[in-house]
């Protein structure tokens, strides 16, 4: 691991300013992804701003009947929160489907959104990767692409976003709250938060340099039957090949977002009107324009069948 300097931030705005002021600085919260990448020298921050002592670890009710989840709420605590379990079951389920008990005890809400891809070529520093080393090329295109994106990818990058939590937040219309180095705050709908790779796959979110996530808010509960179904190579502690986060209402309508298929949680709201007609009617629209590889074309079939299974369970 490369050497770095370290400070503990005293307020969110100070933390943002500290990262903006120090070239190559990064925030550190749970550290479970960042330290893994620092050991491999994929991430080489010159300075770490420890945000763990900021008081951003509470889950509070909002005026409009929703929840405001502090950026530092650990994945275990968010999944176990009684309000989340009762009213946002798809979020609890998504969190519990991810990582291991040890990692969920450390990993934070904001860090989960900001975790990097697990594309094998991003992790292999001996191989070109446009996300790790912009302009070096994409080894995944034409390489081992089975776990990678089938839609929204570019000629520069076919990585997927690995989060389960983010897929549930996308289906729940969460909003990401941030503070900028100059102290200004803003609210970013999660649909706009993660970028597609396009020509700059190293730029994964719309956050400005130094901009710090302070919370994620959920709108008032939408009810319905909430299901998160994750299909993976092992029964536990593995990333999704395909996942579906769904909210299905008694009239057969609802919403669905897909994980493991793109550079961000993948949801096409316009396709959701087709939900009463079954999974294929939805996924035909959700995955229109998909560009799978020979190795991962199975994900399109798997996504349709997984949604079908989720709809059957919800209507059970």
């Amino acid at each position: 691991m490369r050497t770095f300097t370290y400070e503990r931030a005293k307020s969110p705005a100070e933390a943002a300013a500290a990262v903006a002021r120090n070239p190559g600085a990064r925030f550190i919260a749970g550290g479970t992804n960042l330290l893994d990448l620092m050991k491999l020298e994929i991430e080489t921050p010159a300075h770490l701003v420890d945000v763990n002592r900021l008081e951003l670890d509470r889950i509070e009710a909002t005026k409009d009947g929703g929840l405001r989840i502090g950026a530092l709420v650990r994945n275990t605590d968010l999944a176990a929160d009684k309000r989340v379990r009762k009213d946002y079951g798809v979020l609890s389920r998504a969190l519990l489907a991810g990582a291991s008990g040890q990692l969920r005890n450390k990993a934070t809400t904001a860090g989960n959104l900001l975790q990097r891809t697990r594309c094998p070529y991003f992790y292999d520093t001996a191989q070109p990767c446009n996300k790790r080393t912009p302009g070096s090329g994409c080894s995944a295109i034409g390489g081992f692409s089975r776990p990678l994106a089938v839609i929204g990818s570019s000629d520069q990058c076919i990585a997927t976003h690995p989060s389960d939590m983010a897929v549930a937040m996308r289906v729940l219309d969460a909003v990401v709250e941030t503070v900028r180095p100059n102290g200004e705050t803003r609210a970013i709908p999660i649909a706009d938060f993660h970028r597609l790779p396009e020509k700059t796959p190293a730029v994964e979110t719309v956050l400005a340099p130094g901009e710090l996530i302070t919370a994620v808010t959920l709108p008032a509960p939408v009810g319905g039957k909430q299901v998160y179904r994750k299909v993976r190579d092992r029964a536990s502690y593995a990333f999704a090949l395909v996942s579906v986060a769904a909210v299905v209402q008694p009239d057969g309508g609802g919403r669905a977002a897909f994980g493991g298929v793109a550079h961000r949680p993948w949801r096409v709201e316009a396709a959701e009107a087709a939900m009463p007609r079954g999974a294929k009617a939805v996924t035909d629209q959700v995955f229109a324009g998909a560009r799978p590889t020979e190795q991962n074309a199975f994900k399109l079939v798997l996504a349709e069948r997984t949604l079908g299974s989720v709809l059957a369970e919800a209507r059970g």
Partner: peptide, 8 residues
């Protein structure tokens, strides 16, 4: 419980 290898 945490992974002591992934925390400073």
């Amino acid at each position: 419980r945490i992974n002591s290898c992934l925390t400073l």
